[in-house]
Amino acid sequence: MTEYKLVVVGAGGVGKSALTIQLIQNHFVDEYDPTIEDSYRKQVVIDGETCLLDILDTAGQEEYSAMRDQYMRTGEGFLCVFAINNTKSFEDIHHYREQIKRVKDSEDVPMVLVGNKCDLPSRTVDTKQAQDLARSYGIPFIETSAKTRQGVDDAFYTLVREIRKHKEKMSKDGKKKKKKSKTKCVIM
């Protein structure tokens, strides 16, 4: 069974824990209790493949930012979460993405942009803004509501699919490099 290491990042209060708990335990946590770091595991079937999701729910508070490099190193894919009623959390996505790329030393890291709290009427981040940002990053965008469960499975499952595509691409690139290195030079 394939294991996928997913990391949920975003500013404090955007609903990272609520999304994760909704996926794992099928219930909505409405009281806000700032996370330092929590880890969850769940076995699911995605596109006919049974897999184990190892999900790291991270601290959004700035005082825990020193811990970010460590979990970013171990993560295979990242859910970059903002709240649709919090423009600052949307603007912060850029910083999370840049930090992930720096730590992973790669421009090509599996990510999904997630606009959470889409059940709320007080939207300050337009869907088109988020779609445009995701398009500019070359990553999928999904709106979710941890409260109603809308888009929750889709967000995590899409990230797994992005990781699969990335692994497939990397193995193809690896095979191309191996083929090239088999060419021999004969000096007579």
Rank of each mutant, 00 (worst) to 15 (best):
L120Q: 06
K178R: 08
E168H: 05
F82K: 00
T50V: 13
I142K: 12
G75L: 03
L120E: 09
R164Q: 14
Q129W: 11
D33H: 01
N116H: 14
A66D: 14
E31H: 03
V160T: 06
L6I: 14
T124K: 09
G10V: 01
V160R: 10
I93V: 05
E168P: 03
D33Y: 02
F90M: 12
V109K: 06
V160P: 01
D105P: 10
G13Q: 09
F156S: 02
D126L: 06
S17M: 00
K5F: 00
K5L: 01
A59K: 01
Q22Y: 03
D57A: 00
G60S: 04
T2E: 13
V44S: 10
V112E: 01
S181H: 14
A11R: 10
T20K: 00
N85S: 04
M67H: 06
R135T: 08
K165M: 07
E162V: 03
G12K: 11
Y32D: 01
V125F: 07
G60K: 01
S39L: 14
Q99H: 09
D47W: 03
V44T: 07
G75N: 03
K177S: 07
L53R: 02
T50E: 12
K147R: 08
I187K: 12
S17T: 03
E31C: 05
K165I: 09
Y96G: 02
K101R: 11
G151S: 14
Q99L: 14
R68H: 13
T148P: 06
R135P: 03
K128M: 06
I21P: 00
T2L: 09
M67E: 12
G10E: 13
E98F: 03
T2G: 08
C118S: 09
F141M: 04
D69M: 03
K165R: 07
G60D: 01
K104W: 14
S89A: 09
P110H: 02
E3L: 08
K172Q: 07
V152C: 07
D119P: 08
E107C: 08
C118Y: 10
Q129Y: 14
R102P: 02
C80S: 03
L159W: 02
Q61R: 05
H27F: 15
H166M: 11
F141A: 03
D153C: 06
L113C: 09
P110G: 02
G174M: 04
S106T: 11
P34Y: 02
Y137E: 07
T183Y: 12
I55K: 00
I100E: 03
E62P: 10
K42S: 09
A66R: 08
A146G: 07
M188H: 15
L79T: 02
G12L: 04
K101T: 08
D57T: 00
A155L: 12
S39T: 15
Q99Y: 14
R164S: 05
I187T: 10
V29R: 02
L79M: 08
S136M: 14
I36M: 03
D108S: 07
G75F: 04
S181G: 05
V44N: 15
A83M: 08
K178S: 06
S17V: 00
K88A: 10
D38H: 00
T183F: 11
G77S: 04
T50Y: 12
K101F: 05
C51T: 07
D105Y: 06
V152H: 11
K179R: 04
S39E: 02
G77D: 00
Q61V: 09
Q25D: 15
Q61I: 06
T158P: 05
F78W: 06
L79R: 00
I139W: 05
Y64L: 08
R41L: 03
E76D: 15
K42W: 04
N86P: 04
G151Y: 15
G75E: 04
Q70E: 11
G138N: 06
K167P: 04
V14K: 14
C118D: 10
R41V: 09
D38C: 00
D54F: 01
K42D: 05
H27M: 15
M72S: 07
I24H: 08
S65R: 04
C80I: 14
G174Q: 03
L133F: 05
I187S: 12
K117V: 15
I100P: 03
L52Y: 12
D132Y: 05
K128G: 05
